[in-house]
Design a protein around this nucleic acid. Structure first.
Lengths: 189, 189
DNA sequence: TGTGAGTAGTCAGAAAAATGACTATCATGG
DNA sequence: CCATGATAGTCATTTTTCTGACTACTCACA
């Protein structure tokens, strides 16, 4: 009972097909919930059975038909109840950090490669999110938008995403620098 | 096959019982892997069966006996192989951010409470981690320790933990400020 | 002419994680 | 004397999540 709320929250952006929902989960939503497309389709089916979302078939000509979903009143009530309940602590799960934790006992060469790659991914995501932020706030300034804008939820979570990825990138680069210096120091001994 | 590597990496700190491993997962390790004590006990059993860790019984007088585990050579080899393999992308899962995503459609009063509470938790964790960092580096400066220290893995992941929680705290407070201002603005209309 | 990429979705089954209910002992405080 | 909290761990079951393998159609490119 967790993915369901993330799906409901994502669908507040407007009607989405399972496919487009998966796209949304790849960008903005990934900042706070990670899920595979197959999970989303399954979850949409369950949510529809329970009346929390409703779907309508859209016939398309140049591509396969799709079903667009929107949140129902019951779905909104469910989100409301979820918000009122106490939140579980956030958790991160990160293979790369497990590897860094073990850095003293394993070969660091591939680790450095992976950290560098991760920093690059973080950089790309920062750009992506900043573009999204600009799109969301339109021609307004951030302060103005946050005060008077209509839908600030996605904007706020995206702000968090940017901060997270910046910190991610910086930490990766810093860690690479530390590991590399130690490699050289050891090589000399 | 995910928790296993986090457990192996955590056990590099030295011999630990399942119970103490659970404690470690509550503090430092929680920065990159979240797990319940029961999962850890189960995982230790599996790891021992596969010869990746070895345990020894320690008889205690004033409290229940315990089993201390350490990583075997096979375990180290497994960690090495894991490090060489490509890392999956990190993922965050956070109820509270789901709620913020839906902030435009739900009651924000409890949300503000939860964000405030989360900021306080983050503050406490920052202090905890900073104490841990001081303990790990002893009387050395950070630069000196990172260059010449013995076990820098836990230090590096803990640095990330501090940065994450700082960002977390700041974002929560910022979000509270935004939501509160909007409440007042709306109240006036 | 067929190959790959994008759109749209489904199914079955395996793996991983979470939950709740347990058993013990000792120490501490009231 | 009883309750609480810390130490130390186990078991069984359910829930959730992940994975791989599928179907189908269209478009662009070589």
């Amino acid at each position: 009972m967790a993915l369901r709320h993330a799906v409901l929250a994502a669908l507040l952006d407007g009607e989405l097909s399972g496919y487009h929902l998966a796209k949304a989960f790849d960008v903005g939503v990934a900042n706070f919930w990670y899920a595979q497309p197959q999970q989303l389709y399954a979850e949409l089916t369950r949510l529809e059975q329970q009346g929390l979302v409703a779907g309508r078939e859209v016939v398309q000509e140049s591509r396969p038909n799709k079903r667009l979903f929107h949140v129902t009143d019951a779905g909104l009530a469910e989100l409301e109840a979820f918000t009122a309940a106490s939140a579980k602590p956030a958790f991160v799960r990160d293979d790369l950090m497990v590897k860094v934790q073990a850095a003293d006992s394993v070969d660091t060469a591939t680790l450095i490669d992976q950290l560098t790659e991760r920093a690059e991914i973080a950089r790309a995501r920062i750009e992506l999110f900043e573009a999204l932020l600009r799109r969301l706030r339109g021609d307004r300034g951030e302060e103005d938008f946050l005060r008077h804008g209509d839908r600030i939820g996605p904007y706020l979570t995206c702000l968090r995403g940017v901060a997270f990825e910046q910190e991610n990138r910086d930490w990766c680069l810093r860690t690479v620098a530390v590991l590399e210096e130690r490699r050289h120091t050891r090589a000399r001994n």
